[in-house]
């Protein structure tokens, strides 16, 4: 972890505050999430208090502070998906995955995120599981998808 942070930090000039977002983005892209240690490492490099950095990181939707599940469900809740019934899908997802939006299941297998818009409006409603897209989803199709992941042996 330390090695990763110092490798990324070395690419950015110290004390340059505008590098904060790119640094956090790059660390998150590799590590998957941010931790207190990471933030204090960045704080030393940019000469910014940790609470300031936390304030910035917590402001933006992109940054998360806990690891994702092995199967990360993203439900699009854009206007088009909303019109085609993504609210019902959200209910189904929460019920079958047994987690609320934004949370990770206790065994770390599933996580659920609601995204503002993925821009696939003509194929609404859409969900993405890790890197795979599923379009024109109906509640039944969704149940099948969830079941296929639940049955997966690891």
């Amino acid at each position: 972890m330390d090695e990763l942070v110092s490798r990324i930090l070395s690419k950015y000039p110290p004390d340059k505050k505008e590098g904060l977002l790119p640094i956090l983005q790059e660390i998150q892209a590799e590590n998957g999430f941010l931790t207190e240690e990471i933030l204090s490492g960045v704080s030393g490099h940019l000469n910014l208090p940790v609470n300031k950095i936390y304030g910035v990181a917590a402001f933006y939707n992109q940054f998360c502070f806990h690891p994702r599940g092995r199967y990360h469900f993203q439900l699009c809740h854009g206007t088009s998906c909303h019109l085609f019934g993504s609210s019902t899908l959200l209910g189904e997802l929460e019920k079958h995955l047994k987690i609320k939006a934004g949370n990770v299941s206790r065994d770390g297998k599933f996580s659920l995120e609601v995204v503002a818009c993925m821009g696939a409006c003509s194929q609404a409603p859409v969900i993405r599981v890790n890197e795979t897209w599923h379009t024109h989803i109906t509640p039944e199709a969704l149940c099948k998808i969830i079941r296929s992941f639940k049955d997966k042996k690891e």
Binding site: E18, V56, F59, Y60, N61, Q62, A116
Partner: peptide, 18 residues
């Protein structure tokens, strides 16, 4: 970094400044 408000120009500038 996924903030709707950053489409507003002064907010965008603040975001660019870190």
């Amino acid at each position: 970094a996924g903030a709707f408000i950053c489409g507003e120009e002064t907010a965008l500038i603040a975001s660019l400044e870190g």
